[in-house]
């Protein structure tokens, strides 16, 4: 009996020994917004060059920490590295280099039943500061606004704060925090009074995208900068990349890479 169990376990353990080449893979950690791009690049890269790539989506802040501590080769980030992150990297002898892989608009989304079609940047800021608490305040129905934000680790949250709220403006303490783009989408699509913000690649018909300052986030509006809430998406490496990591980063500039980015709903640069 015991022997048979041991045999079973060892068969299980060794079943896939020769499944993949040993080591030499690329480890990517960071933004949930960049996640779809990183995952699709990884799949394409593995098919094409047989180099294993693993992708974790634990947030831009964790990606930066990973790169600084040397636990990942590429940190995908939906915001630029902050001064103190670069300083922390320097003390560990890490030299973060940014590579822009795509452009992304932060779509402001509400429940599809919400008749509000657009807001100004100032109105959105007031809602997130907690000064406007009812949709009536922006010309909508008399319903309480459920404000949804991301966690502090999120690059989308950082970009939103910078682009919409302005530096140093606090988001209301009544705001609900969700830990990923997907979770924000779920919450907004199931809550009639909700407002939230998402990377463009996550928008689908379960939520309604509203215009900001009269401009809707479209490919052209983001590219020419008329949509006010857009930002580049980055992949950071330690120093100028070499070898397979360089090959991976360069993928974003190739025709195939740009098509992948486009198909995912982001904007290739």
């Amino acid at each position: 009996m015991m022997k048979r169990i041991l045999l079973l376990l060892s068969v299980l353990l060794f079943a896939s020994v020769d499944a993949v080449a040993v080591g030499g893979g690329i480890v990517i950690d960071g933004s949930t917004t960049v996640g779809p791009i990183a995952k699709s690049f990884a799949a394409y890269f593995k098919n094409r060059y047989a180099v294993p790539v693993t992708v974790s989506e634990s947030g831009s802040g964790n990606g930066a920490k990973g790169l600084i501590n040397g636990t990942c080769d590429i940190a995908s980030m939906s915001r630029a590295m902050k001064g103190r992150e670069i300083a922390a990297a320097a003390t560990k002898g890490v030299n973060p280099v940014a590579h822009t892989i795509a452009l992304d608009g932060i779509a402001i989304v509400v429940h599809p039943s919400n008749p509000v079609a657009g807001l100004t940047r100032a109105q959105i800021a007031s809602i997130y500061e907690g000064r406007i608490t009812s949709w009536k305040g922006v010309g909508g129905p008399n319903a309480r606004i459920v404000v949804i934000q991301r966690e502090s680790n999120s690059g989308t949250q950082g970009s939103f704060g910078e682009l919409v709220m302005g530096k140093g403006v606090q988001i209301t303490r009544n705001a609900e925090t969700q830990a990923s783009n997907g979770a924000v989408k779920n919450r907004v699509s199931s809550t009639p009074g909700a407002i939230g913000f998402l990377g463009m690649g996550f928008v689908d018909r379960s939520v309604k995208v509203i215009g900001v300052n009269g401009v809707r986030p479209s490919l052209s509006a983001i590219r020419n900068g008329s949509y006010p809430v857009s930002r580049p998406l980055y992949m950071y490496t330690n120093g100028q990349p070499t070898g397979v990591v360089k090959q991976f980063i360069d993928l974003a500039g190739t025709v195939e890479g740009k098509r992948i980015v486009g198909e995912l709903g982001f904007i290739a640069q």
Partner: peptide, 22 residues
């Protein structure tokens, strides 16, 4: 395992990779 071992996308790893691969 969130911070120590798990990734959202990766291939099945061989037994020799357990020391280095998530």
């Amino acid at each position: 395992i969130i911070f120590t071992a798990a990734v959202s996308v990766g291939s099945a790893i061989g037994i020799a990779d357990v020391f280095s691969s998530p």
